[in-house]
Amino acid sequence: MSIGNGVKEPGSARLALSLAFAGFISGLAIIAIYEATLPTITANKAEELRQAVFRVLPGVTRIRKFESTPEGLKENPEARGEEVVYGGYDPQGALVGYAINSAGPGFQDTIRVLYGYAPAERRVLGMWILESRETPGLGDKIYKDAEFVANFEDLAIEPQIVAVKKGTRSAPNEIDAITGATISSKAVARIINEGHQRWKGRLPAPDGQPGIEEAEQ
């Protein structure tokens, strides 16, 4: 910001001091509110994520967070970014599937999708839109229209998901597009397909699934 241009009256030392003091106070205030709200915010986020994962992986009771590393999946509750998947387990501790994040361009802006994927069957178990700015009343049916969301319950992902005109769904890898929002529907299919391309080699097949033994919490 404007650094005082000279040694006029208050003196630059005093200016710097005022700024530093203000910065200090402000920093204190911010840290205070951050600390105060952090638990709630973390809990909110975790809850939101749980909700989403439960939606895309039916029958799951426990979730674990994995990070993809060159050596394979590693559990890492602190992981961030693109290389993260969630494993969902049923009460018996068996892996139901993975919840995978994928994003891509939609009709308006980026659509962020979470989908559940069963590696053994190579099927999509469910889909949930985390973020989108699709047209209200039309493109937003990708998450508001239960019928469309239901398309993704038990859907074959290979060779790839194909959106077809509503009512003409005939193959296990086809979904009914939303009438009038074909682009948004196709975008969701494409985003999941892309996610699959990115992840399919890295998710261990049923035998090599990350065990639940060392799991805590």
């Binding site: 005082g4 910065g23 402000s26 509110i33 709200t37 909110n44």
Partner: peptide, 28 residues
């Protein structure tokens, strides 16, 4: 207490602090 030369910067710091507080509160 606010020196004239840096008043705008100070205003912005003050405002930004309050905005951050509001931001986190709403988020929570």
């Amino acid at each position: 207490l606010i020196p004239k030369q840096v008043r705008i910067s100070l205003y912005i710091i003050i405002i930004a602090t309050f905005v951050t507080i509001a931001d986190y509160t709403i988020l929570a």
